[in-house]
C-alpha cells in the first residue's frame, strides 16, 4: 500500500471524538463556571467593590479554585469530561500554569518550577501581550489623527 493511500485509510478510519457528548459537557460545565463568575461579581460588588475590581477578584478567585483542584489531583479528571468547558474559562489558564509547576518540582524550585511554569501557558501570555502592544501602537497612531 502506498504511503498516501495508507494515510488516507488511517484518516478515514480514525474514530472521531464523541462531538455531541463533548459539546454538551463543555456547554454546561463552561456555562456553570461563567455563572459562578457572575455570582462572584455580584457578591463582590454587593460587598462594596468597584465593578472592575470585582471582576479582577472574581478572576483571582476562579484561578484559586482551579489551582486547588489541580493540586489535589481533581482538575484533570473534571477536564477529561468537561473538555473546553474547563479549558476556555480562566480555570484552564490557571491549570496550565499550576500543573507544570507541580509537575516540575522534582527538578527544583528555580530550574524546575521557575523555568517550566509557563511551558503550557506561555503561548497565551506571549500572544496576548503581543496583540495588546500592536493594538496599543495602532490606537496611539489613531489618537494622533483623531
Amino acid at each position: 500500500m502506498e504511503t498516501k493511500e495508507y494515510q488516507a485509510l488511517v484518516k478515514r478510519r480514525a474514530a472521531r471524538s464523541p462531538v455531541v457528548k463533548n459539546c454538551a459537557a463543555a456547554f454546561w460545565c463552561g456555562g456553570l463556571i461563567c455563572a459562578l463568575g457572575q455570582l462572584l461579581i455580584y457578591l463582590y460588588t454587593l460587598a462594596g467593590m468597584q465593578r472592575r475590581d470585582a471582576g479582577t477578584l472574581t478572576t483571582i478567585t476562579l484561578v484559586f479554585i482551579a489551582a486547588l483542584l489541580t493540586g489535589i489531583g481533581v482538575f484533570d479528571r473534571i477536564a477529561r469530561y468537561a473538555g473546553a468547558g474547563t479549558l476556555l474559562p480562566v480555570t484552564g489558564f490557571a491549570n496550565s500554569v499550576v500543573s507544570p509547576a507541580i509537575d516540575n518540582k522534582s527538578e527544583g524550585l528555580i530550574l524546575g518550577v521557575g523555568a517550566k511554569i509557563f511551558t503550557v501557558a506561555g503561548p497565551v501570555l506571549l500572544y496576548a501581550t503581543l496583540a495588546g502592544v500592536v493594538w496599543g501602537v495602532v490606537y496611539f497612531i489613531i489618537t494622533l489623527f483623531v
Binding site: 489541580t70 484533570d76 477529561r80 468537561a82 473538555g83 474547563t86 479549558l87 491549570n95 507544570p100 509537575d103
Partner: peptide
Amino acid sequence: ERQFRTPIEYGGQRTPT
C-alpha cells in the same frame, strides 16, 4: 506523560486513537 505529553495534572481530553 511528563516527557512526551503534558504535565500530569494538566486537564485535557485525548482522542479515541
